[in-house]
């Protein structure tokens, strides 16, 4: 059952991560980690006219957390800040193609989204909701 979560898209992004690295003069920048397994993700976003013009992620961790970050950075290119703040976990999970991620691994998949939300809310100066990735 469980190896079903290693869909081709996840393995593709795990082996060949997109947008990996750092941006120096980014408007949005945030980091978080998953204390249980040590996954760590940083996301830097460059904005032009309130629209994402460049994005990089960096980090280490399991295939699920790292490929999810890679996929997420692909998805948010060209989006407005408002769209970033409204980005839902369902959009990300649908793209990952793994709606059946169990409770043990969902945190790995949503770590990148949590980092995106932390950075976006910080940029907007609004208070972070309790479970920003949900």
């Amino acid at each position: 059952m469980s190896d079903d979560i290693y869909k081709e898209i996840i393995l593709d992004h795990y082996r060949n991560p997109r947008n990996k690295g750092k941006l120096t003069d980014s408007e949005i920048s945030a980091q978080d980690n998953n204390p249980v397994c040590g996954d760590r993700i940083t996301i830097d976003i460059k904005l032009e006219n309130n629209v994402v013009s460049d994005v990089k992620f960096d980090g280490e961790g399991c295939a699920i957390s790292q490929s999810s970050a890679s996929i997420l950075t692909d998805m948010i290119m060209g989006k407005t800040v408002d769209e970033l703040s409204k980005f839902t976990k369902d959009e990300l999970l649908e793209e990952l193609g793994t709606p059946s991620l169990g409770p043990a691994r969902i945190k790995c998949a949503l770590l990148s989204l949590k980092v995106l939300k932390i950075g976006t809310y910080q940029y907007l100066g609004t208070e972070l909701p309790e479970d920003p990735e949900n």
Partner: peptide
């Protein structure tokens, strides 16, 4: 360089229970 969580997940698919983490 396989992450322990990936190892444990894939082993779980074979009904093998191991621990991954700190």
């Amino acid at each position: 360089d396989f992450h322990p969580h990936d190892i444990a997940s894939i082993l779980d698919g074979e009904s093998i229970a191991v621990r991954a983490g700190h």
